[in-house]
Design a binder for these strands. Structure first.
Lengths: 227, 227
DNA sequence: TAGATTGTTAATCGATTAACAATC
DNA sequence: TAGATTGTTAATCGATTAACAATC
């Protein structure tokens, strides 16, 4: 399989569109479709075809004029590019409701993530198992993380404990943190921090909702004293 | 307090930063801090102070030179702007692990979201309660949604059933959909769709992880949140 | 007053979109 | 061949950042 030279710089926007393409491509692959054009992919998502072409460029796959790209090739290359070919072992700190849900979401393995254990400071949770995974006390994290070569740490504790959870994991050599707490976190340089903040997505939704229901009476013409 | 004229167009980027500011401001408010400057807020998140100022502009709040903005005023105005003052009732379709977690995450009420019931096609789940909330059969959704004036629908079904779940809710008059399925969804015009896709966030994380371990290639990091 | 901060306009930067030659 | 599609360069658009006068 011929790969062309990949662009040196990949934007976060591109990175976020790749999983969308991948999901579609896997459906096509399962249907036995062999080739797909950027135009077809773009139509599916209402994107610009040129944008899709530029996005796919990062995978190094080359297409064929009039035919498009090999579906199987794209699936492989996107997975490889995202690091989803082999799952990375991860520890999760905070076995609350959100933490439990993530522990039970086995699909993550398809996305390069394998949560191997949970940690919690609550002694009543420690010792139990959630979806077959042990809940351990926080003080066991450092040694275990080193011994098991854990790459990813997931933070699902309340906002006020997020920084100390992160510090504990970084101190244990974990270099990539997936944070679900709505708190600004400080990281040493070299550590990767990705925030999966549901509240940001919710903010966009609820703001749109009230704007739509306020229709007409826009918020642009109100310089009325507020009581 | 006088509100100034607000910008007519608000970018999605701005909308997503507001919950970050809000969280910080609520902490400051609890600490009894009365005023805060954009410079201070910016420092907390490693943002540009001008960006913070522009973001806050959308709330209509006015600051005072040398003093900054009233913390209490900002908290109120951001909440109002995001529609987080009063919770919107929501139905959730798909009582799997992720659905369960969302049902148990009572903090959503702080973010304008009140999940009142869940729906599932699995007869074994129907009739049970999850965190006190009833699990009902899908066919009861349309009537109930209309009777209860439900505004928001949450989709936590597998990707292949996401479109039909959405269609069911939109048919029942629900105008805003919060989608967790990794599938491209079609909506009629006028309906609000917001995708809360964890896989996108995960893609950024795992890609960063393998690129760090591969060292060598350079990638854009301009849009990476510096939190 | 002096100087930090607001509010606003202009410059910069990067991502998206348009244009088009090359290709199959 | 004819025409759809790739790959690439240029134009556009929008968000971020810089500059600076007004203000307290």
């Amino acid at each position: 399989m011929l790969l062309k030279e990949k662009p040196v710089v990949v934007s976060r926007s591109t990175l976020k569109r790749l999983p969308l393409y991948l999901h579609l491509l896997e459906v096509l692959l399962a249907q036995g479709v062999e080739h797909v054009s950027c135009t077809q992919i773009a139509k599916e998502f209402d994107f610009d075809p040129t944008q899709v072409r530029k996005d796919l460029e990062v995978t190094g796959e080359v297409g064929t004029a009039r035919i498009g790209f090999r579906v199987a090739g794209l699936v492989d290359s996107i997975k490889e590019f995202l690091g989803w070919n082999n799952a990375h072992d991860a520890f999760l700190v905070g076995a609350g409701n959100l933490g439990k849900a993530l522990l039970g979401y086995h699909d993550f393995e398809k996305y390069g993530l394998n949560i191997v254990a949970a940690f919690d400071k609550d002694p009543r949770k420690v010792g139990s198992r959630i979806f077959g995974k042990e809940v351990l006390p926080l003080n066991k994290l450092p040694n275990l993380a080193k011994r098991m070569h854990i790459h990813i740490g997931i933070v699902t504790v309340p906002a006020e404990h997020a920084q100390s959870a992160l510090d504990l994991m970084v101190g244990a050599g974990i270099m990539a943190i997936w944070n679900f707490a709505p708190a600004p976190l400080r990281i040493p340089s070299g550590v990767i921090l990705e925030n999966a903040r549901l509240t940001q997505s919710l903010a966009v939704l609820t703001n749109n909702l009230i704007r739509h229901s306020n229709q007409g009476e826009t918020y642009a013409n109100r310089d009325v004293p507020k009581i």
